[in-house]
Design a protein around this nucleic acid. Structure first.
Lengths: 348, 348
DNA sequence: ATTTGTTTTGAAAGCGCTTGCAGAAAATAG
DNA sequence: CTATTTTCTGCAAGCGCTTTCAAAACAAAT
């Protein structure tokens, strides 16, 4: 275990000695403070020195050590991002957008996942806190409101799919209600009256909103809401499949199905196929989220499209605003319906 | 802009003062060094003091500041992970597994993406270096071999889908050749002779391996290789669709199609459908990767299954070994074929 | 030329933790 | 009950950068 005394302590990068600001200062014959000031633009510096320092910097290929910088500034320059799975198109895409968004302001994201389990999520959040992140972006958190509120007293928060009122919390408005309403309106516009709905888990705010949008649409068109026409899935292919089968087995009549997300729609589609019901000839089907794969199902799925990139981008932007003491103003553009072939007007 | 002088410099976490090791030391009436030693187990400490310190720690809820720790130790405790997109099932899942894998040893991943563009990737890697990551995991890098070799002189590397010989580089063996061979063998076993192949981009090693596996299988069964039966896609749904259309338009005869990945298979499936060819009655189709959605296509897709989790996990494990000076030994288990309904024995 | 008001600059004190060194304490030996 | 060893433990010097403070340099004013 005893190291040779010749070996000096090594820093981050494995090979060779690290080029430090001090070395730059020496090379440019100025004090470290001056170099720092030039680097950060925190004070005017005589032009001649600026040049000398810049020369030294590029000559030595100096890149400031972010760790030292963080310590000195008392800012980690990192923000936590809690997702539920990362291995789903939605989170993956959002994560990517957040990454590039944060990067623009030199923050780096620290991803952790909650696996849809509150305990896991709580632990992940704690880890972020331990890492001294400067803020946390939570994509559809499963934590109870009070906990979120408490958390917000420690770090600024940006939430999607949740609405929690507290200082230091910015909730990105991704209310799915209007979008779901739009989708259902479309089906009704095509003449459908008996529209089944494959819901997400009821304790999930976003899922509740989609259901609410569906009901709002029915109400607006004076169509009575039939509880028997809604079955709950879990946003997964398997869940959608099972839900569809249950629906079919219930012998309720319906001419169209609105799946609360595309994965469910995929499952539903297969279930319908298995039971010999053709889409869209026998029953129309629409999804929600418009995943890349949705344009390639058989038949291609009509689905509500919302730019996930945009969600990620706005979240990142809002977070930066929050961290730097500004008031976030990020707004999402309105969703649109990607009309394809899985739904058609009701004949007759 | 002028802050009140009363306000002292703030550290990472926004609220209140940060609890420092020094405060713990004071509370436990020992020196900071002792606290540090207890924390890290770097030296024996009298039992009574250990207790006092631990009491102080939990009483004050102390959590060591990782930034300060990194600086002092000269180790960032972070490893870079370069993916190409993150918003694809494959990368998302791998990323997730890497995250948990690294976490076990207290390293945290820093994700960056290359977007399949060498220039982007190069820039991303530089960013990682600037961040002083202790190692880099590259999932299917697009950088030329020499560049990788050069890079490996700065930080240890773990690669997947590449084979670069150099010290400090560990290439996870994910040679797709045998897996592809297995897949093609299956089709041939079902009696197919004229098997079309939808390839990935030819300059992509992994894509080349899949093609090689296909050819090896043909050769092993004395089936002449017909160049006209292979078209190149780009691993995307749209690419698979286009490739399939081209194939159909070429009027070559084939009874089965082997798509080099599932996304391509999805596209191909739709193309076949559009042209009135039924799967599997008229043509059998197999994919590769076994995405979650593949079990729900119509018909469900037979596909080569490999645990992506495992890839991520092994990569993480190997990286940790490398960083801590051990010799990695991670090995992947063999892939299996998920047999579903899109392929069937050739009748007659 | 002297005084006063501005800019520029450097010295030095941190940021919170680790660690080499050497003195203190405890354990073992004489 | 001393002389040695062997274990603990504290001091202090960093890690590489930022920032306060005050001195230095320069410019403007008298």
């Amino acid at each position: 275990m005893q190291r040779s005394r010749a070996k000096r302590r090594q820093t981050g990068v494995a090979s060779g000695r690290e080029v430090t600001l001090e070395m730059v200062a020496a090379a440019a014959r100025v004090s470290p403070s001056t170099v720092s000031r030039i680097l950060n633009g925190t004070a005017r510096v005589r032009e001649s020195k600026v040049r000398a320092v810049n020369a030294a910097i590029s000559q030595l290929q100096f890149v400031p050590n972010p760790v030292a910088r963080s310590l000195a500034r008392g800012k980690s320059m990192s923000v936590g991002v809690v997702t539920q799975t990362l291995n789903s198109l939605f989170y993956g895409e959002a994560a990517q957008a957040i990454e590039t968004g944060l990067l623009r302001s030199n923050y780096s994201p620290l991803f952790v996942s909650g696996h849809w389990r509150t305990a896991d999520e709580r632990k992940s959040v704690q880890r972020l806190l331990d890492q001294r992140v400067q803020g946390i972006i939570m994509l559809t958190s499963t934590l109870p409101d009070e906990e979120i509120a408490k958390l917000s007293r420690q770090v600024p928060l940006v939430l999607t799919g949740r609405l929690v009122h507290a200082d230091n919390v910015y909730c990105l408005d991704v209310d799915s209600t209007p979008a779901a309403r739009l989708t259902a309106d479309y089906l009704i516009g095509q003449g459908h009256r008996r529209i089944a709905f494959i819901a997400g888990s009821p304790d999930h705010l976003d899922a509740a909103q989609r259901l609410a949008g569906y009901r709002a649409s029915l109400a607006a068109h004076d169509i009575p809401f039939a509880p028997a026409l809604v079955t709950v899935g879990d946003y997964s292919e398997a869940g959608g499949y099972a839900a569809m089968i249950r629906l079919l087995d219930s012998h309720e009549k319906f001419t169209a199905v609105f799946a609360a997300n595309d994965e469910s729609a995929f499952g539903a589609m297969l279930a319908l196929h298995r039971r010999g019901r053709r889409v869209p000839e026998d029953v129309s089907l629409v999804g929600f989220d418009d995943l890349p794969a949705s344009a390639f199902t058989i038949p291609p799925l009509t689905s509500l499209h919302r730019s996930i990139d945009e969600v990620g981008d706005c979240a990142a932007r809002a977070m930066i605003d929050l961290v730097e003491g500004r008031v976030p103003v990020a707004r999402l553009s309105s969703p649109t319906l990607a009309i394809r072939e899985s739904a058609r007007p009701l004949r007759g």
